[in-house]
Write a protein that binds this DNA or RNA. Structure first.
Lengths: 176, 176
DNA sequence: ATCTCACATGTGATTTTATAACGTTAGCTT
DNA sequence: AAGCTAACGTTATAAAATCACATGTGAGAT
């Protein structure tokens, strides 16, 4: 199994947009630990309460490193000894997504851990329809055709959902 | 109530992208009739079967001119004497969206009639969070930051979801 | 003309996703 | 300790989507 870095910051040539997080293997233990630590730090700094359930949900999403439905998360919460009714998961997910630690993938009715913690950003996602792997990039939809259309129409954009569905490199290879 | 044209083709200055459909009033009877006629024509030309249920669902969406959930559509189907179980609506919606006559708004779990019938396009939507009005524009997400990220990651885009949530001109005025 | 095969529809049941409502608990503030 | 607020646990229910299976229907083959 090849081993390459997940972010492209250190690679040869990503042009001028933010780290398009790639697919494939990477230093996962670090990635989980670092992200959790950074979430804790930010919560402390901003007076947000990263309670055990919330922390566990974030950990689950970081561990899995793919989009999980609320009920899949709930199963894991139950296994870990937390409450097992839907609101437990949904409330944690609400908190985490309001604060940018996780994002909802509308196309899948599922959730992923944020790959650009800390940064204010307008996320964009690449979703593999074969393996459900999800990679996060950043987009600037308000600067392209959509932004122009919004301006022309007098529409004030507050939030954008940008999701691309397709086939990830690994699955493309497998099927070939 | 002001009266302005819905398409911007005839207006002063939309740059070089396709007709960003605007919000607000327009010649609705024509719009519904024309769209239905054009759908019928295209189905005839391509050997697609625009059956009564399918036609009715398209008509409902054109009439309402906003995003409707499958169950809202189902209610109207029942009133019109069609079957009243969910699959009736979902199957018609599947057909219509596979063939580009309607689009699903993932953010709302709802459906709208296509405003660019006939054209192959990658739709983008502006959704008013106050009144749920939806305007359709076209986007070129594969040409911007997302396209670059996909290329860098080796991800093959097959389909994109682009939805902007915000406030439409009418609602912005009302609240002011 | 009728057979047949693919496609479309009707219906009941079920699954999946999400929220409402309400009491209890935990951590702060005073 | 009293009182406040945010978080949690649980029951119940709503909303969105699909499964499974019987029935109907229309176009081409025989």
């Amino acid at each position: 199994m090849i081993q390459y870095n997940m972010t492209s910051r250190k690679q040869s040539g990503p042009p001028q947009h933010e780290t398009p997080v790639g697919f494939g293997p990477h230093a996962h233990a670090n990635c989980v630990g670092d992200a959790l630590a950074s979430a804790e730090a930010r919560c402390a700094a901003e007076g947000l309460r990263l309670t055990p359930v919330r922390r566990k949900v974030l950990e689950i999403l970081l561990e899995e490193h793919k989009a999980l439905g609320a009920y899949a998360i709930l199963d894991r919460l139950r296994d870990a000894g937390f409450g097992s009714q839907p609101p437990v998961a949904y409330r944690a997910l609400d908190f985490l997504s309001e604060n940018g630690f996780v994002h909802k993938i509308e196309r899948l009715n599922a959730f992923v851990a944020c790959m650009h913690p800390g940064a204010h950003h307008t996320p964009a996602f690449m979703i593999c329809r074969k393996c459900d792997a999800v990679a996060e990039a950043t987009s600037t939809p308000s600067k392209g055709a959509l932004g122009a259309a919004a301006k022309a129409a007098g529409f004030q954009i507050e939030r954008t959902v940008v999701e691309a569905e397709g086939v990830c490199p690994a699955c493309a290879e497998t099927s070939a």
